[in-house]
Design a protein around this nucleic acid. Structure first.
Lengths: 148, 148
DNA sequence: CGTTATGTACCAACTATGGTTACAACAACG
DNA sequence: CGTTGTTGTAACCATAGTTGGTACATAACG
């Protein structure tokens, strides 16, 4: 199964906020027109980012903003905020192996350590990418040509 | 989203085959009793492993076996065999960002390289674990105590 | 108080997972 | 050759997650 598009949408949203916040009020409407989805989708997503402490958003007046310096928000933070895997486990283990079978009894112990290493490798790589890095790359692509 | 339990079941099945093949005929019935799922689930799964060239299985007489030396089967092979992500992409990108928005137009280019690196880190780690490694770890846990 | 935007409840279509039953196809054996 | 055991596969179901949408109460603010 693929990691849901909520993740890439969340990154898109965060980059959008940073690029446009000095010139526009960042509403769910505004963001939805860049991502091309329903505003409600954006609002739900922003709620998840808010719970994770990545953005602030005010109710009546509107407008979202990042809640932390950009170099302190990594792709892993966004991933964890949005990909609501309760356990935090990347791999879904089959729950009831037959404990009377020697393989069934030990498969968990044999596999777990390896699976953790794999998950950790992925998370480390995610953690190494900050929003600041992505914003810089975005700015580089915007500046050479014309302005917004 | 989690990686489906088909993956850990597949590994369980492959280890089972190797541990028991000298003493038992490896039928879907036999495997299903160790994994604790319906035999049909095992058969469907074995079909995927077969298509990937990891196991052989004969129809009427029954009995599955690995099709390659164990040190040449990695967790990545099993993952690719079983996790039928058509594109091979771990991340699902939202498809229609607004190309009239500078961020929407460039988000793909900015993110893709980073996402590929993350996926590659995971795949590299998966590739570093062979079935032989897992079998050895399993045997170590079985020998100290009693035999089957 | 009216305007604006968020927060959230509810709905719907689609897809994947995990499981089950049923049965045809096939190999091996007495 | 027919019986037996097993695979390969279709059909079906329940459940859950994804993606997308409508509607409206709630809060902020001029």
């Amino acid at each position: 199964m693929q990691i849901s598009s909520r993740f890439t949408i969340a990154v898109h949203v965060l980059v959008c906020i940073e690029v446009f916040k000095k010139d526009y009020k960042i509403t769910s409407e505004f963001l939805s027109s860049s991502v091309n989805v329903n505003p409600v989708v954006i609002r739900k997503l922003i709620q998840q980012l808010k719970k994770a402490g990545l953005v602030c958003v005010v109710r009546g007046s509107g407008g979202a903003d990042t809640a932390k310096p950009l170099d302190q928000i990594t792709l892993l933070d966004v991933y964890n905020a949005v990909e609501c895997v309760d356990s935090g486990e990347l791999f879904h283990f089959h729950e009831n192996p037959n404990l009377l079978c020697p393989v069934g009894k030990n498969i968990h112990a044999v596999l777990d350590e390896r699976l953790e290493k794999i998950q950790k490798a992925m998370e480390d790589e995610m953690q190494s990418v900050t929003l600041l890095d992505l914003l810089n790359r975005m700015q580089n692509r915007l500046q050479p040509g014309s302005e917004i």
